[in-house]
Structure formats: C-alpha cells, structure tokens
Design a protein around this nucleic acid. Structure first.
Lengths: 325, 325
DNA sequence: AAATATATGTTTACCGATTGACATATCTGT
DNA sequence: ACAGATATGTCAATCGGTAAACATATATTT
C-alpha cells in the first residue's frame, strides 16, 4: 500500500512538498503539482485518514445514534443527515441503539474512542450522567439533554394544535391521542400537551394512550391500540404521534369494520412514505426533516468553528391534508 | 484529553504495562489490572482508536454503501448489518450513493482512505474498473461484481417462480412484471427470467416493465405504471420487484377503481413493513434479510481471518400469502 | 537448588501522515 | 543589482498508541 513517502520517492520530491500539494499549503508550481498527481495515480495512492486524523486531531466524522433504522422517520433523517454530512466533508459513523440504554452508553463511548468531531443524537433513554465530561459537541434532534450543545426540534406544540383542531373541525367529538414514549421527558410530549389543551378549549372528550418502550422498540402497537378502541367505541378521531402508528390504527379500523374517515378520522405525524401508501392515505403533520438534518450538521460545523449557536432551534410543521380525515 | 501516558504516570506504571492491561497481553496481576482500570476511570480515559488503528493496521470498520436509506428494504438491511457489525466489534461507516455512480466511486475511495476492514456493497451502477486494485475485501449483497470477494443473494429465481406460479394458481391470465433497474446486470434480473419462463410454461400472456434509473432513485413509479395499466386493461396480475412498487400499484388500482384482489392480484418482493400496512396487505416474497446481513459480516470476518469463503451465497425465499392475491 | 511461570519495567522503532523552522534556489520587478 | 515573491528541500518533532526485545524480580513447582 503506497504511502506519502512512496509518492515522494517516485516523484523525486520530499514528503514535505508532496504534503503541501495534498493540502494546498505554501508555494507549489503547477508542474510539481501535476507530477505529484500523476505519481499518486500511478501508485494508486490514497492518503491514510487514520494517520491524518491522528496528526491533525480532527476526524471529520459525525457519530449518529438513532433508536431505530427501519422506522421510516429515522431512515429519512439518516438519509438527510448523510447528505448534509457529505456536503460538509464529514463521514458518518452510524449506531442504532434499538432503545436499549446500555447500548446507547456504549455507542457514545465508541464515538468518544473514535474521536468523532461531534455526535448527533435522537430521542433515547440514556441517563444524562453519561453526557458529562464528553468533550465533543452533541447535537440532539427531538430530544432534550441539558449537556447538549444544541437541540433541533420541530414545533411539536404547533403540530399538536394543528392536528387536534383539524380533527375537531372535521367533526370529531371523542378524541384519542397515541403518544410516543412515556418514560422520559421529550420534546414530542408537547404534542400531547397541545392535544389536551385544544380538546379542553373545545369541550371535546379525549383519551390519551402512552405506550411503553417495548411497543416503540418493536414498532408494533396493535396490542395496545386494539383494546382501547374496543373499550371506547365512542372514539371518532385519533391523533397518532407517528404515521407508522396511524397506519396501524387504519389496519385495526378495517379489521373492526370501522370506516375511515367516515366513522373515524386519523391524523399522523412526520409525513413519511407510508403516509401516502395506506388506504386511505394519511392526513399528517409534516416535519421538515431535510432542513432539520441540515441544521444539525450546520450547527455542528459552526460550533467546531468556534461560533456560538442557538441552544434550541425549532422548525415549523404543516398539516398535510389527505384522505384519513 | 487523557492519553495512555497519563494513565501510566498516574498509576505509577509504564505505558508498556498499561497497554498490556488494555489489550490483555502478557502477564498482569489482578492488583495492577484494577489499579489501571481505576486510574482510567478517574482520568476518564478512552483509548484513541485512530492511533490504535494506525499502529495495528486494523480499523474494525465496515464501509456500507447503499443506493438508498429511506427505501425500506435497505433500511432493514442497514439495521441488520449494524447489529451484526456491533456483535463482531465492527463499526459502520455509512454511505448512501443515491444512485449516482460518481458518488459511489467517491464513497469507495472514502472507504479506501479510511482503511476500512472491508466494504459491503449493494446494487448500484458503478463501472467495475473502480474495483480493481482495491485491497480490502468487498462483499456484495444482491449484486454481481467480478472483483468482489463474496456475494450474498437471495434465491431470486425461486422467488420469481413462487410469485408467478402463485398468481397463475389464483387465476391470473394476463400478467405484468415490474422490474428493478434495467441498466445493469443484477441478480434481481433472475426474478424476471423466472417470471417469463413460468408464464410461457403456463401459456399465460405477460408483459414486462423495466423502469429507468430515475424511478428507482425517486422511488416513485406512478408515472410509469399508470399508463401501462391504462393501455392494458386485460392485466389481472402484477408481480412487482419490491413491496414499495406493489404498494404503489395498489394505490393506482384504487384510483382507477380496480378492485384488489378481485380484479387484480398483486405480489411484491422483500416483505418489509409496508407490506402489512397497505389495504389490502401485500402478498410477497420474503427475503431473509437478517440472515443475509449476518452472512455478509460473517463472510467478511472469515476473509479477514484468512479463511476461504464461498464466492456466492444464495438464501432461500418464501411466499408470504396476504390479502392482495 | 534449579527450573519455570508470573509480573513488571525500560526502551524504542513504527504506523503515516502534518507542520514548523530554516536553508536555498530561482524568478520578477524596479 | 537587489528586494521580495515563488518554489522546493531538509530535518525532525508530534499525534497516541502497539509491540517486540531484553532485563529483573518474585513466586511456585519439581
């Protein structure tokens, strides 16, 4: 495997000069530059990023820790993050904690050992103690951590308002909200707060269902939704905290012969692929995922450049009206 | 940031001894071991993997290059790969080529520069020249490359047979197959070959639709499927090369008032989440994704250990009967 | 008492770059 | 002709580990 030294030898130059070419540093004549490039190609030379990182103390790596990859919301996020990272010359170390907190700790440690330039962290369960003493910036998305450098969220409260008001406008009088995870305070909780407030203001009956971890982990909510709908046949509208859940509600309705949207109206959250592939298609609250991902990478960039960034950045959401309401 | 040297100093030992503790090498008394651990914790020491990799010439990193992340099949694959990688003490560098071949080349180069232990590559377009002179093992999944160390595929042919025979058994007489990508020879093409063969054997009319790249990139096939169904109202069965496509066919049928499965039967491929979230749920060919991902990582492991691995590993598929047929 | 296993230290080259200090040449412009 | 810009060389420390070679010093076994 060719090294800088080999390139220097073959091109009759010194490592200093070759390194200068490689990093566009100092004075280099066009002739020399071309010669170096030619030799690099000839030897099929690729700089060793490990050595480089060690020397420069910069890895240009972002550690991304998500609770899930198959969940379409996270898949979309990872996709957008990858793109934003690439454009900023970062590479991504991906970790999926699958909602096991000890895994998350392990992964943060791995980020640490690999000297990531920064980490991007999604909603998870980890005890905040782990975050103390970390010396790389941590950007969160839809999650609160005191120690985090910056947090990206969507306007969860507004999303809750939009969804709930829409259901009520469409004539619902007995609403059900199916939340995310209960255990920990998360930005997404504001969807619930908004839901409650709007329901109360409009004098509408409501129920709130907060699934345990395990449902979130398995992404299978049938077992918890079904009994609620059975015990509360009066429910005529559901505000689900993800499109995935909304899609499952649709399945249960079909199973029970409840017509959507005639007898039951459903609003999801996120606006991912499946929202447009179910029957009926799901009315949902759209999160600007791409923009949020870009903001995360850009915030990281700015922090690393020594700039100050907002502790919280909240992005607007919009109601996307489809067929389920 | 604490280094090995700091730990050595604080614990009154030498770097040699501390390194021995860290790597379980040579003789170490329990007392010393504990002392080292204590000091490491006190100093909040985390070994620098860059330095380690540079020294050992092993990064324990797998470069994973996928065409897409949001596509549920790849999301499922990445998820399984991540798990298998973690269990084998690898970390994952993730790249999404979004079907732009120049990106794929770039990404392979990045794997190279980062001295990955190996790369796992999915169906993509890259010219094979790029693969020559790579000196790390490349494992492919659902893709042929001469230069690859090993290839993991599912039994695409058998899948095609199962899907097509099932459609015919269910009474279809005018079948349509919607393929993956046309441009390049891929293992998935065998689904088409099987489809043709079975149709001919049964004397069933058939049509084959092979979408261009752009549809695959955008994951939006409506524009190409719609006209075919309009121009060929006789079609009564579709074998789609992914559940994602199948789901879109269902949407188009609904739009056109074609009842599924009564007037039109549909079989997908992959068996990902959405297959169970559409109405009707999609009958599909299930790929053993988890096992395939594990096989990929395990093959990489074995190659790195100097063992010989099979050039091709083909995994069985099964028909999962749901409501669309 | 000798042999062997166990435990640790010291020292140092090495992995593959970056980078700064300092020395020398050419060129170019005035 | 001389200053300054341009172009390259030399040398060596540094980043944070690994690991081999070699030296000691106990502890245990035979």
């Amino acid at each position: 495997m060719a090294t800088l030294k080999d390139v220097a030898r073959e091109s009759g130059l010194t490592v200093g000069t070759v390194s200068r070419v490689l990093n566009n540093r100092g004075y280099i004549s066009e002739k020399t530059r071309q010669k170096v490039y030619r030799v690099m190609k000839e030897l099929n030379y690729q700089p060793n990023e490990m050595a480089r990182s060690l020397s420069t103390q910069r890895t240009n790596t972002i550690g991304v820790i998500v609770p899930h990859i198959v969940h379409p919301y996270f898949a979309k996020m990872i996709d957008s993050l990858e793109e934003a990272a690439y454009e900023n010359e970062y590479k991504i170390l991906l970790f999926s904690s699958k909602r096991k907190d000890y895994l998350e700790e392990k992964y943060i440690e791995m980020c640490w050992r690999n000297r990531v330039s920064g980490a991007i962290l999604f909603s998870g369960l980890v005890h905040t103690e782990v975050f103390k003493r970390l010396d790389f910036p941590v950007i969160t998305i839809e999650r609160f951590i005191d120690e985090a450098t910056a947090g990206i969220v969507c306007d969860n409260y507004q999303g809750g308002v939009l969804a709930t008001e829409h259901l009520i406008e469409r004539g619902c009088r007995h609403l059900l909200h199916i939340g995310g995870v209960n255990q920990m305070q998360m930005p997404g909780d504001k969807r619930k707060v908004a839901f409650e407030k709007v329901c109360r203001e409009h004098g509408v009956n409501y129920l709130i269902l907060e699934p345990d971890d395990e449902y979130y982990t398995e992404m299978d909510y049938y077992a918890i939704i079904r009994p609620v709908l059975e015990q509360h046949p009066e429910i005529d509208g559901v505000f689900a905290s993800s499109d995935l859940i909304a899609a499952q509600v649709i399945q249960i309705c079909r199973e029970k012969g409840i017509r959507v949207p005639e007898q039951m109206k459903i609003v999801g959250f996120d606006d991912v692929n499946i929202a447009s592939l179910t029957t009926p298609r799901i009315t949902t609250i759209r999160q600007p995922v791409k923009e949020m991902a870009e903001a995360a990478v850009s915030a990281l960039n700015r922090v690393l450049a020594g700039e100050t960034v907002a502790k919280e950045m909240r992005f607007p959401v919009t109601l996307v009206r489809r067929e389920s309401t």
